[in-house]
């Protein structure tokens, strides 16, 4: 099992390296930072000089290794547009986004676990069907639409909650919660719909297993049998989905931050794309990709730990 984990770790590190190379190639290989920086009035001579000055004429791999080296120390360079250091901002923005993502994640799990189990237990009743139908709809609705609907109802119509912007939790915890409720709901509810469906299926599968029938034969209620024996097994496919969801929410946050004007990494990414700020986009994209890969690495490891078949495989 230790070997399994080491192997996964190696794969993870390798993947991040290859991904960083791909990102660097796209944004610093194909894109031309010197031209972008000069913008108007860029003469060929000027571009050439600046390329020289910025060290863009050096071999691709030299530049890549230099960037990679800096990145590993948290030094992502300075934006070509604002000349501000990217690293510190990345940390700030990411912390905002992580609040958003984690809150949404927790919300979706809290909603989906009981709902999915209920849907499974009641799968022959109308309530179960109703839950399935609602989740089917929920899956189709984009998170940003949920956001718009929530703003329309709770901010515009009822005036209960603010329509957007962000409050730093350390400064004003109450205000922070007030501002985050709607964004969390928009991201979390959609993911809850997806998750509910997986939980339902996983639980249904377990309910058909012999050991649960045995447990019930011993006099346990379906709930007891499920909670005592079935959850661990049902957790395996659900765990997988949770990892995927975390990444989905992270990307979904890009749009939801726009709806609620939250100064997270997604809004920064969209701004930087608009400014053709190659280096900043590069830093943000590799960060998000690295997070995605890390999540899938962690899920894989947990998978190995949880699944008895793999433990001895």
């Amino acid at each position: 099992m230790a070997w399994q984990i080491v192997r996964r770790l190696l794969i993870f590190v390798g993947s991040v390296l290859v991904a960083s190379l791909a990102v660097f190639w796209l944004l610093s290989g194909i894109g031309d930072p010197a031209r972008v920086q000069l913008g108007t009035g860029a003469t060929e001579e000027g571009v050439r000089q600046l390329r020289e000055q910025m060290g863009l004429n050096r071999p691709f791999f030299t530049r890549y290794l230099e960037w990679l080296g800096g990145t590993l120390h948290g030094d992502f360079g300075s934006s070509y547009i604002s000349h501000a250091a990217i690293g510190p901002q990345l940390a700030d923005r990411l912390s905002v986004t992580l609040w958003l993502v984690l809150g949404a994640m927790v919300l979706s799990v809290v909603v989906a676990l009981p709902l999915g189990m209920l849907a499974a237990l009641w799968h022959r009743r109308w309530a179960g069907t109703l839950i399935s139908g609602i989740t089917q709809l929920g899956v189709a609705v984009p998170a940003f639409l949920v956001g718009i609907l929530l703003i329309a109802l709770f901010a515009v119509r009822l005036g209960w909650l603010p329509s957007g912007s962000y409050v730093v939790p350390a400064q004003d915890p109450g205000g922070f919660l007030e501002h985050m409720i709607l964004p969390w709901l928009s991201l979390g509810l959609v993911q809850a719909a997806v998750l509910t469906r997986y939980v339902r299926t996983a639980v249904l599968d377990q309910m058909g297993q012999d050991y649960l029938r045995t447990a019930r034969a011993k006099g346990l209620t379906p709930w007891q049998a499920l909670l005592r024996h079935g959850l661990r097994n049902a957790a395996i496919p659900v765990l997988t989905v949770l990892g995927v969801q975390l990444v989905t929410i992270l990307v979904g946050a890009v749009v939801v931050e726009q709806v609620f004007v939250i100064p997270g990494i997604g809004q920064w990414l969209v701004d930087s794309v608009g400014n053709q700020d190659l280096l900043t986009v590069q830093a943000i994209v590799i960060t998000l990709v690295a997070i995605a890969l890390a999540v899938s690495f962690v899920v894989d490891v947990l998978y190995t730990l949880v699944d008895p078949r793999l433990r001895h495989g």
Partner: peptide
């Protein structure tokens, strides 16, 4: 503020 509506929100919320 990059986003004009973020600026409006900030005024509304006292930022």
């Amino acid at each position: 503020f990059k986003d004009p509506s973020a600026m409006n929100s900030a005024l509304l919320t006292g930022g």
